[in-house]
Write a protein that binds this DNA or RNA. Structure first.
Lengths: 244, 244
DNA sequence: CAGTGGTCTAGACCACGCT
DNA sequence: GCGTGGTCTAGACCACTGG
């Protein structure tokens, strides 16, 4: 059963030309395809929109559409923060190793726990949590939104959590107060970004968001930290190394 | 800076009504919104298309658009096939545990290795590989495309890999020939599906694909198996359990 | 400036699903 | 049959980008 609609036929033809290398970089204009295929502009644009939503091409007003070729960075999830001299966290070290220049901006606040965060931290929904919101950038471009949530009882027991500043410590903040994380539960999901996220991360049309959540537990089973990291899926390879 | 275009204003209004619960299930028709907002049909449809591409709503011809509420299944990635009596693999057992009815259809073929598969298996691109392609279903609906690639030297050393059939064995095929996998390297990516994948998996518009690849290694370092699993992102929670 | 993609309109016909 | 979403056209104006 062949494709019947014009815009799907056109989209299929363009996909083939892209994968065959006919269009290495620039794509034809609306007008060029209108005359080549004899379709109206709306139909041509519907085909282009489909390819954009598949992440194959990117469009910018005033310029020809281009084939999308984003650079990707590996993100190893089973390399922990080294406890020694390094002042960088595992993510920054990994990016630097790959030839990128990592940076981060941090803001700390106290907020009430949303139901999903409360469930992960095993506290009551609406209870206070300490939130450390980070925007991680590579080569000056925003790359990740990494938010950590700490339960309220940590603030009461360890004054360092109530101090202003970026809440970082060599070897890891939790380890520095004698609460090392012994176990992690990770979950990975993907979805399309909201308009807010699109703007904050500069996500292109048709690129999903990878949402990585990590909950860290003390050896006695208490959840110590819940971390939600969001990033454009076309810029990373999330990696796990496991022993059977 | 407020939103200036009509279709974005409308999309924002509809997003708000959905999250506020104004539209629990059915959404208004094109005509209803055209008269409520005074916009042309194309503009109304552009707003709806944006919400579809965000995975918020689903549309079916002849019926009103509906708010999307897919059922999700957990997928634990650190639970290995139990070596004993169970005839099911870890995935099927997990689905059954969650109240679903797993099934699978298997086809086996010999093919030449694509560059990415060859690199993972440390063989030459174009060399033969044994491919076990599985379609995993839950409650009769296609759920995953799980393809395993085995290097050619396995077929030469172990005739069982050249037999017809579904290539399954209690405790795992590789373990049954004395080649247990000692280490895994996993990689998780997300992208929009191709038209083929959309059809095979029944993916809704605006839903990304999660692509999980796992390479299994012998204790001596040889790659034994490369597995690529593709699934709709709105139907799973990929989970990892890790010790620090 | 000319060319590009982005937005918007008014109108038409079709295929689908329900009653 | 009738309302729904899906497709398609012709034409218009705007905003952005480059030379």
């Amino acid at each position: 059963m062949p494709i019947s609609t014009k815009h799907e036929q056109l989209a299929a033809a363009l996909r083939k030309r892209i994968s065959d290398g006919v269009y290495q970089d620039e794509l034809p204009s609306d007008a060029a395809l209108m005359s080549e295929f004899g379709y109206s502009r709306a139909t041509v644009r519907q085909a282009f929109t489909a390819l954009e939503n598949e992440g194959l091409i990117v469009a910018r007003s005033g310029m020809r559409r281009r084939v999308s070729r984003p650079q990707r960075w590996n993100w190893p999830m089973t390399t922990w923060e080294k406890a020694h001299n390094s002042s960088e966290d595992a993510w920054a070290a990994s990016i630097r190793e790959q030839g990128g220049e990592p940076s981060a901006s941090v803001s700390v606040r106290i907020d009430v726990a949303e139901p999903d965060v409360a469930a992960a931290l095993q506290i009551e929904p609406g209870a206070n949590v300490l939130v450390r919101a980070r925007v991680r950038s590579v080569n000056g471009e925003p790359h990740q939104l990494a938010d950590s949530y700490f339960p309220h009882w940590l603030m009461e027991q360890h004054p360092i959590f109530s101090q202003p500043g970026d809440l970082s410590a060599p070897g890891g903040l939790l380890a520095s107060v004698g609460l090392p994380q012994a176990r992690y539960l990770d979950e990975i999901n993907a979805r399309m970004p909201t308009p807010d996220e699109t703007q904050l991360l500069g996500v292109a049309r048709g690129v999903p968001l990878i949402v990585h959540t990590r909950t860290g537990y003390h050896a006695d089973g208490r959840p110590l930290r819940h971390m939600i990291t969001r990033m454009a899926a076309d810029r990373v390879h999330v990696q796990y190394e496991l022993d059977a």
